[in-house]
Amino acid sequence: MGANPMIRLRGVTKSYTRGGEALVVLDRLDLEMEQGGFYALMGPSGSGKTTLLNLIGGLDHADEGQIWIEDEDIARMDGPELAAWRAEKVGFVFQGFNLIPVLTAQENVELPLLLTPLSRRERHEHARLALELVGLDDRRGHRPSQLSGGQEQRVAIARALVTDPRLILADEPTGDLDRKSADDVLGLLQRLNRDFDKTILMVTHDPEAAQKARAIVHMEKGGTLGRIEPLEAVRP
């Protein structure tokens, strides 16, 4: 791994209790991912891919271990600190898009900006630019129900990048899309990584989608790390 890791995990363990029994999802995981990388996280069901993504994104707490994102150990943060950290440092893209149905595309993208000191006019302008970047400037006034799945996911990507985070976490971002829409979304993620230097970690089951990344991180059943497979062919 390079000398400039963006993400460093040391001895991260996470288990859940199901039916009275402890189920270890991640077992003393060590991992490093470099700044500006585009990683596809693959593995069989139950290998802890989404759990790992949630821990790196500060959506969940590890039982043990350290999770360093740049120079902060987020495993030591409490709820409000994590919320503030998420608002500033991470953009999320979910499989089910997770747009707020009662808000327009513009309002959905503006939502994270409410947590910034930007003025109303600035928020509006930033959201407009983000939607322009994902090619949906003409759909700003549409609600999620008036958009196609691919368009919804592009709005979600615009929402993820509108605060200009350095890290974007995507959980099966193409899982609910047809091939054409999936390719559009993956192309957009590639562009964010290449042109805007965003570090992207993407969970996927789709080998074709994984091939768009710069490296594939393989997870093994039982929550251990498999091999990391560099994909030099897609590097710019």
Partner: peptide, 14 residues
């Protein structure tokens, strides 16, 4: 409920 999750994920406090 899901909107609650989205808002929290985006950084809105409890």
């Amino acid at each position: 409920t899901r909107d609650i999750g989205v808002l929290k994920a985006l950084g809105f406090t409890d």
